[in-house]
Nucleic acid binder design. Sequence first.
DNA 1: ACGTTTCCATACGTACGAGTATGGTAAATG
DNA 2: CATTTACCATACTCGTACGTATGGAAACGT
Lengths: 195, 195
Amino acid sequence: MNQSTAKKKERSTLSAGDWEQQALILIAEKGIRAVAVESLARRMGVTKGSFYWHFNNRESLLEQSLIRWEKHDAANLQTSLSAIEDPRERLRSFFRRTGREKLTHNVYSSLCTASDHPQVEPLLERVAERRMKHIEKAFEEIGFDPKEASHRARLTYSAYLGFLQLQQQHQTPSLSSEEFEAYMTHVIATLIPEE
Amino acid sequence: MNQSTAKKKERSTLSAGDWEQQALILIAEKGIRAVAVESLARRMGVTKGSFYWHFNNRESLLEQSLIRWEKHDAANLQTSLSAIEDPRERLRSFFRRTGREKLTHNVYSSLCTASDHPQVEPLLERVAERRMKHIEKAFEEIGFDPKEASHRARLTYSAYLGFLQLQQQHQTPSLSSEEFEAYMTHVIATLIPEE
DNA sequence: ACGTTTCCATACGTACGAGTATGGTAAATG
DNA sequence: CATTTACCATACTCGTACGTATGGAAACGT
């Protein structure tokens, strides 16, 4: 009934979802440790009083935010799976998504550098497991036996994770656009066997 | 039995080096954020007063500790380089060192999950650069042209970094010993071309 | 119109960790 | 023996960030 369901634009009042969304943006920008309730409140144009009406505590906010992100990520994975039927092309699109794409991806990148956080650790484990399963499935569709597919999936995902790490260290835009493309081509050629 | 020195000899007094060493142990165990001067002092069997006699502040301790570790790591790399003449075998030994080995390795693993730390970031960049250079050199010795060797080195080190990440997430001993060996064999076969 | 609910501001309480001030004691030094 | 120096303990201050208490105002129900 109320117009609190209206997402953007003229909002006279905030919802819990708004806080979660903004928290994810902050995580993507400065990491999970930067999610402080007072600074976040300033970012939202309000004060702590508002926050503690919507959430019991900071931990609760993080929990909800991470759940929201995980659902979103799982959905992304599912659609990209059903969208591309060729398993090889599916694997290639997985890598290609590394450099581009924005928020969802940056959130994951930030979360990886906070893998020691008690709320983040199990999440990362679930997400990695889920993604590797998809990669594994693609390799099986190509024709590898389960054992081999498992190894390939692990190596593929490791290469992905490691590249993320290297990206973050170099605060510089890392590689030039063409160098990035050349490297991606190499990776794909090495990890995804040709017909 | 003494309680003041679990380290070496019978030391009635501590040196700055002792603090740095213990800090590195703590980093390996619980990450850099766990390096708090009071808790560290308790670990050393003394109090803050001692710490601030040896160091100006916490930042100074971390700086010295990380320098010490970086030197140690660079020396390790150098010796392993000169010890193994066959470039292929050199690369294999690099991977094999992933699962085993102890402190130095765990410190690096912990530092990777703190890549946002201002003192850690440049260190990680230097270390990654130095290590990749060695890997790149090995690939060149095998016979790849510089461009190809660069790509292979980046992919190899990414796979290494990513595997570290996966290891840390699963607090579980991750893979069984034989599964680990099987995976390593696969990685080596995939990334290091046979004669 | 009036009370209730929703949403938020303000002010306070508290815990933790870095850093300081100061003093004590044992060993070295003259 | 006296005194300086090295090393450490104790007791503080201070900044930060979480959480609470309470009150105010707009929106809503009846």
